[in-house]
Amino acid sequence: MSVLVSRDTKVVVQGITGHQGTVHARQMKAFGTAVVAGVTPGKAGTTVEETPVFDSVREAVEKTGANASCIFVPAPFAKDALLESVDAGIRLAVIVTEHIPFHDMLVMYHYARGRGARIIGPNCPGIASPTGAKVGIIPNVVFRPGRVGVISRSGTLTYEIVNGIKEHGLGQSTCIGLGGDPVVGTSFVDALPLFEKDPDTDLLVLVGEIGGTAEEDAAEYIHHHFSKPVVAYIAGRSAPEGKRMGHAGAIISRGKGTAKTKVAALEAAGAKVARFPYEIPDLVAGILPAGSRS
């Protein structure tokens, strides 16, 4: 068991013939993931390192049984790629592409949600479970099977922290990099119930950043609905007070959004908050029940 991905996950890579698509399809396979198809319009009939390429997601799903998508398509075409995958019956789409306009993402999110599909991202590292599969771009070297779940808004900082957990002799159940864009398909609050239900997760590490109110919303959820221990870290304590997004933005996030408000909210919800990334493994090891180290 793991969260959202498993040994039954079959990935179609949209944009597989591009450089990033090719490189990361290879890395996903090296992780042990079934990458069954690629899609690039106009390239049907070719292969990328033995993976068959199709013109459309529908064709890829019909011929290979793909049930998850990893999207590397450039930003101007990413909306179309996502809508296509949802219409082809894909119910888990990881969007790695960065710089997708949030107006596009609003349409993508509500379209997918109305059809029971989940988006992770955009502009995100994706999801990986050492005993399941990887859909995305998190480096394979940071993983080791274990019982620590990780959710994060960051990219490389997630790798840093997941790697720190491994180097401490601990391992991960599932790690999700949600992406830090203004509109994300899966937020902390969306991901928390998945880890609450996951029998393979004993403790959750939550990695946040300054800006927005996602961490405060997560704290509220943890307080009322999350029973497992949480270790958190918020990046950006030292940042000078950021530029605000105009006055309307300020009244939406009234009194929230700084490192101070996020740390306070998470501590009030019972989370242990690390001051620096390298404090996380010790905090985790101090809480994790004996016998659930790996």
Binding site: S152, R153, S154, G155, T156, L157, T158, E160, G180, V207, E209, I210, Y233, A235, G236, R237, S238, A239, R275, F276, P277
Partner: peptide
Amino acid sequence: AGLTMATLD
């Protein structure tokens, strides 16, 4: 961005 901010911290 996250790693950059953590580095500054």
